[in-house]
Design a binder for these strands. Structure first.
Lengths: 161, 161
DNA sequence: GATAAATAAGACAATTTTTATCTTTTTTAT
DNA sequence: ATAAAAAAGATAAAAATTGTCTTATTTATC
């Protein structure tokens, strides 16, 4: 298991979308700039998020991304696992064939327990909760941005019908 | 955080040593063969384990490795973190500079909580406990080995003075 | 319908990490 | 003195990650 940069970006993207008005469609460019994600990389990430049913993608002029569900129904676990696959702490768990006694191994059982604890913790956290509190994308980031870029971004935002 | 192959090997090595008589010195070759670890890779791993004070290395003829402490005083966490560094679930935690509001970020706090849970779980498990139960290195592996290789390994084992 | 704006898709490259392997040196028991 | 064993470090191979770039496709708007 490794929380990759891609997963980190996915979280930021979802966080940014969660802070918009419900169902708001936001362009990839805006998200990329505001959440500090390489734009083309975000395109790939968005496709994974879309396949997982977390966001809707609208193509074409004035296209962009929008959350498929309310942030209260999206857990941190779901976003992370969409990007890095089901969390496995080690190969022994991931590939039982590599471990000659996984069904009956004490070490294996510890990893399983740790894994389930971790997943439970991440599952309990929704994006609604996260946006209710301060995050990396709230004030501290905005302070760092140029005022113009903030204003310029707004007109790009509209509602998905 | 990723439990690398090296960490997995380190666990197996420690598990193998834990199952010997207390203070037993075992050659690198024997451990490598019996725990299915590439011998030269094990040499590197052993040096990390030795630096961390987990094992003693005896050089020269009839040299080898021995546990520095009783298995009850060695936790799974200590072995894992010796190999992969202090567990961090994501970069945001590892490098606060990369996260613009880590001190005050809701996502950050979730990762911190998950991290401490994981570390606590691994800290609670000692190698004495692990060897008391079946592991990948007990019977299932032995069954797979040729009888000769099992007998041939024994004479290599002796006590560290 | 034409145009422009936006994403989709996929090839490709750079970087980093991991996983080794090999050779030479040093240490130690006998 | 010899041989067995680990130390140390250079090097290579493999895999994963992190991007970038180009071409296609889709869509809103005029």
């Amino acid at each position: 298991m490794r929380v990759t940069r891609a997963a980190e970006y996915a979280i930021r993207c979802m966080l940014y979308l969660s802070r918009q008005d419900e169902g708001a469609l936001v362009s990839r460019q805006e998200i990329a700039e505001r959440a500090d994600i390489p734009a083309h990389f975000l395109a790939k990430i968005a496709q994974d998020l879309a396949k997982a049913g977390l966001i809707e993608i609208r193509q074409g002029a004035r296209g962009g991304f929008a959350l498929s569900r309310h942030p209260s129904a999206i857990s941190l676990l779901e976003v992370v696992e969409t990007m890095i696959g089901e969390i496995q702490l080690n190969d022994c768990i991931a590939r039982p064939s590599g471990c000659k006694a996984s069904y009956n191994c004490a070490v294996h059982r510890v990893w399983c327990k740790a894994r389930e604890q971790l997943r439970a913790t991440l599952r309990q956290v929704s994006f609604e909760q996260l946006t209710a509190e301060t995050t990396c994308l709230t004030s501290p980031l905005e302070v760092l941005l140029e005022p113009e870029s903030l204003e310029g971004a707004d007109p790009l935002r509209n509602e998905m019908q």
